[in-house]
């Protein structure tokens, strides 16, 4: 059974973090990132060609996490594989010990480093969840029976509490829940009220919510995040803190730590998901502050 699920269901505040596999076959640095966080977070979310950039596979990254005795969450997108490949990847992952799967539609190839690639999108995020749920019921998506015990995945998906209109985002969350999602990892949120509003509206779905955290690194990074994450708002106050900070990186980590502490104290969400986007090595500093 998924350890992440056990933890979330036990009611403990869960912390997960994102780790990006390398652009290459040398996993030493990746292993080091995992080691830095070993025993300090509850699960490692391994990205699948994030930003449509070609990397070592998510499954291989998950195996490194497993070999360190840690709990991986395998991201899987619909961008690069059709339903046959997605289902066989899921079966393979389960056979090798991966229990948690996060279904994502996937960033479009022209946004990445292999812009000439053929976009697949045979399944979108909802379709991937349907496929995984179907495997869990002992059948493939076409209805053919699987041999042996079916896999028991803990399925997750993404959501964006900042999205406007929120009604539309909630419909998508609902679809993902009906397709099998049991936990949600959200886009970065910087405003407690936005988080609160979202959590209230999804409470009826009875799913676990990990609020997304992207520590700010500089005023520039804050501006970038405001542009890139649909609907996200970084308050003037936070911007000001970043502007006047002597060490903006440290300030960003402090802001993130304050936010996480408040979420934990008020029992706002079931946990948080930290996305350091390339700066994974700063996450231990953030964890120290909690």
């Amino acid at each position: 059974m998924s350890r992440l699920r056990e933890l979330l269901e036990s009611g403990r505040f869960v912390i997960t973090a994102e780790v990006g596999p390398p652009k290459g076959s040398d996993v030493n640095d990746f292993r080091e990132k995992v080691n830095l966080l070993k025993g300090r977070i509850d699960a490692f979310n391994v990205t699948d060609g994030q930003g449509a950039s070609m990397r070592l596979s998510s499954l291989a990254g998950c195996l490194v996490v497993l070999s360190e005795g840690e709990e991986p969450v395998m991201q899987i997108t619909g961008r690069d594989r059709n339903r046959i490949a997605i289902q066989s990847e899921l079966l393979g992952a389960y056979a090798l010990g991966v229990r948690n799967v996060l279904a994502i539609t996937g960033d479009y190839p022209t946004l990445g480093d292999n812009p000439n690639a053929k976009p697949v999108y045979d399944l979108d995020s909802v379709g991937i969840l349907l496929a995984a749920s179907s495997l869990m019921n002992g059948k493939d998506l076409a209805g053919n029976p699987l041999k042996g015990n079916p896999p028991k995945f803990y399925l997750g998906a993404t959501a964006n509490p900042n999205f406007s209109p929120l009604e539309l985002e909630l419909i998508k969350v609902e679809k993902k829940v009906s397709a099998g999602a049991r936990f949600f990892q959200t886009q970065a949120v910087y405003d407690l009220r936005v988080a609160e509003q979202f959590i209230k509206r999804v409470a009826k779905f009875n799913v676990k919510i990990l609020l997304g955290i992207i520590p700010l690194r500089s005023v520039k990074s804050a501006q970038f995040i405001s542009r890139m994450i649909p609907g996200v708002k970084i308050s003037k106050e936070l911007m000001h803190r970043m502007e006047v900070a002597e060490d903006p990186k440290l300030e960003g980590l402090k802001i993130a730590a304050d936010f996480i502490k408040k979420v934990r104290e008020h029992g706002l969400a079931h946990g948080v998901h930290i996305m350091a986007i390339g700066a994974e090595k700063t996450v231990p500093v953030l964890l120290e502050m909690l």
Binding site: G78, R79, I104, T105, G106, D107, Y108, T110, L111, P119, Y121, D124, S125, V126, G127, T158, N160, L168, K172, K175, Q187, M228, I229, P230, G231
Partner: peptide, 20 residues
């Protein structure tokens, strides 16, 4: 939809605009 997805929008839709 550039992705031709059946259960959209994807997470990239920003301010009503397409990510692609």
């Amino acid at each position: 939809c550039p992705k031709g997805i059946l259960n959209g929008p994807c997470g990239g839709a920003n301010d009503g605009k397409c990510e692609v």
